[in-house]
Design a binder for these strands. Structure first.
Lengths: 153, 153
DNA sequence: GCCATTAGTGCAATTGTGTTGCAATATTCG
DNA sequence: CGAATATTGCAACACAATTGCACTAATGGC
């Protein structure tokens, strides 16, 4: 993993005012280096072996990152939560894409306004989530032969 | 459970051309009688004890109903799948609401067009899913005292 | 109506993700 | 440095959902 991501991660963790620990820095650095949303298992796999972070700690750190607005959590429809570093680009509300074959999740820049939806009386809206389902480039059938490795569940 | 729902369910199952079995009919009847999307556990609980359907069979029947367009599946962000009978009202694409407190899911009629979102090259869009998160009438705090039972996870 | 075919079911065991309790550790602040 | 306490690691657990396989029962031809 690139050391510059670790530097960025250290700074981000420090900026929260909470304690700066190796698990927090390393997990956030992994997210910074990721090109897409990662599952808990993927984060764990990408942690350098030297880092030696416990499974449960990874869960708790991810949750902590979300609470501190350093990451955001995406619930796909495969019952797996994925996490993204909260970059400028994804600070506000935005849409997500999930591949219905391999499960890959990426963030999308949203163009256009969210449609208005009427809620029943007494209901209170907090957040709107827009998810596009489809096939990612690596999973589109009959496409030109690709060298992209398919990451299946 | 109302017997008329069972009649409707029998007809719907028969219309698929596949075998008409008690588990299929009873599960679909439960969905027909439901006022909101039900989890697997809720479906099981609402099955009359006389029906005696195995847990696993309920899972498989729900999946079968979805494959045959008699029901549709909603993935909330609490890692639990919920199922709705596919009625006319919900035949096409529509939005969902999920209560962030009790987890309740209902279908919404969507007003207005879906916003256009650009996918990366090579990606193929199949479906757009719009979910509103918020609080349902029973979970809104400080509301006038309610007699509504709260259904918590 | 009866029988053969095979789709569908039931049961047991397993997977995978995520959570909880608690003792041990390590960060921060004076 | 040394105390206070936020975090971590470990073990056990919770729970939805899945898989393998033998058994049962719905359907279609006779």
């Amino acid at each position: 993993m690139a050391t510059d991501k670790i530097g960025l991660a250290e700074e981000a963790v420090r900026s929260t005012g909470a304690r700066m620990t190796r698990p927090r820095v390393m997990v956030l650095a992994v997210l910074f280096a990721a090109e897409r949303a990662l599952t808990h298992a993927e984060v764990e796999a990408r942690l350098p072996r030297a880092a030696e972070v416990d499974r449960v700690t990874v869960y708790r750190v991810l949750e902590w990152l979300v609470d501190n607005h350093l990451a955001h959590k995406i619930a796909g429809d495969d019952r797996v939560r994925r996490f993204n570093a909260a970059s400028h680009a994804h600070a506000g509300p935005h849409a997500h894409f999930q591949c219905s074959d391999c499960g890959e999740v990426i963030c999308l820049e949203e163009a256009g306004a969210k449609p208005a939806v009427k809620l029943p009386v007494g209901y209170k809206q907090q957040q709107v989530e827009l998810t596009i389902k489809g096939l990612c480039a690596g999973c589109v059938p009959a496409s030109k032969p690709r060298t992209v490795a398919r990451h299946h569940h």
